[in-house]
Amino acid sequence: MLKISLKEGQYVNIGDDIRVVYVGGSGNHGRLLIDAPREIRIARSTVEQNPERKKDTYYPEPEISRQAQNEIRRILWNERQKGKN
């Protein structure tokens, strides 16, 4: 397992197709944008209060909205433009 620290706007590439962008946060909460091919399944784990329920249950995230997809594209495009300067 790799543990890294990122500043707002910094990102991590995983392979050639996945980019994880840190977009900020406060306290114990951080916000990430994940740009990955549609066929890659991404699931968020949560802290489940009931250990019996957590054991064998999978809770898929709802599909990301078109607005969120456009925001991710805008942020990634801005990051690429910063790298060119």
Rank of each mutant, 00 (worst) to 15 (best):
D16H: 04
G24S: 05
V12H: 09
Q10T: 11
I4R: 08
R19I: 01
P51F: 13
Y59T: 10
V47K: 10
V23E: 01
G27E: 10
G9H: 12
R41I: 10
K54W: 08
G15S: 04
I14K: 04
I18N: 01
L6F: 06
S26T: 07
S5W: 07
R31Y: 14
Y11D: 12
I34P: 04
K54D: 10
E48R: 08
H29W: 09
G30A: 14
V20W: 01
V12F: 11
I18M: 00
I4Q: 07
G15Q: 01
E48H: 09
L32V: 09
V21I: 14
S26K: 10
V47S: 12
E48G: 07
G15M: 03
I42E: 04
S26P: 01
Y11H: 14
I34G: 09
Q49K: 12
S26Y: 06
P51K: 14
G15K: 02
K54S: 09
V47C: 08
L33H: 09
K55C: 11
V12I: 15
S5M: 10
I42P: 03
V20R: 02
A43F: 04
L2G: 00
K3L: 02
G25R: 02
R31L: 15
I40L: 15
D16A: 06
P60H: 08
D16I: 00
G15F: 01
P51L: 15
H29R: 14
Q10L: 10
I42S: 03
V23L: 01
E52V: 13
G30S: 12
E48P: 05
Y22G: 00
G30F: 03
K55G: 07
E48N: 13
Y11K: 13
R53Y: 13
D35L: 15
P37I: 15
D16E: 05
E48C: 13
A43W: 03
D16Y: 02
I34D: 11
K54V: 08
V23C: 00
G15N: 05
P60Y: 07
N28Q: 08
D17F: 03
V12W: 08
G24I: 05
A43C: 06
Y11L: 15
I4G: 00
T57C: 06
G27R: 06
G27M: 07
E52K: 14
N50F: 08
E39G: 07
V23F: 00
K3G: 02
V23G: 00
Y58I: 09
D35T: 12
P37F: 15
R41V: 11
E48M: 12
